[in-house]
Simulated scan of single mutants.
Amino acid sequence: MLDHLVYATPNLDTTVAEIEQQLGVQMVEGGRHPGLGTRNRLLGLGGRAYLEVIGPDPDQEQPPVPRPFGIDTLTSARLVTWAVAVTDIDAVVARARAHGYDPGDPQDMSRRTPSGDLLTWRLTPPATAGVVPFLIDWSTTHHPTDSGLPKAELTSFRARHPDVEAAQRSLSALNVDLDLTHGTTPTLTAVLRSTPGSLTLT
Rank of each mutant, 00 (worst) to 15 (best):
M1L: 11
D3M: 06
Y7D: 03
P10N: 06
L12C: 05
T14A: 15
E18C: 12
E20N: 06
Q22D: 10
G24D: 01
Q26G: 13
V28M: 14
G31Y: 02
R32P: 02
H33D: 02
H33A: 04
P34W: 01
G37K: 00
R39T: 00
L43T: 08
L45G: 10
G46I: 09
A49G: 12
P56S: 11
P64R: 05
F69I: 03
G70R: 01
T75S: 14
S76V: 08
R78T: 04
R78M: 05
L79C: 10
V86T: 09
V86L: 12
T87F: 05
I89Y: 10
I89M: 13
A96D: 08
A98H: 09
D105M: 09
P106G: 08
Q107R: 14
Q107H: 13
M109S: 13
R111A: 13
P114S: 10
L118C: 12
T120A: 15
W121A: 01
A129C: 12
V131H: 00
I136N: 12
D137Y: 00
S139Y: 06
S139Q: 15
T140V: 12
H142G: 07
H143Q: 08
P144S: 10
P144Y: 05
S156H: 07
F157P: 02
R158F: 00
V164A: 03
L174Q: 01
L174G: 02
N175Q: 08
L180E: 15
L188N: 06
A190C: 07
A190I: 02
V191Q: 12
S194F: 06
T195E: 13
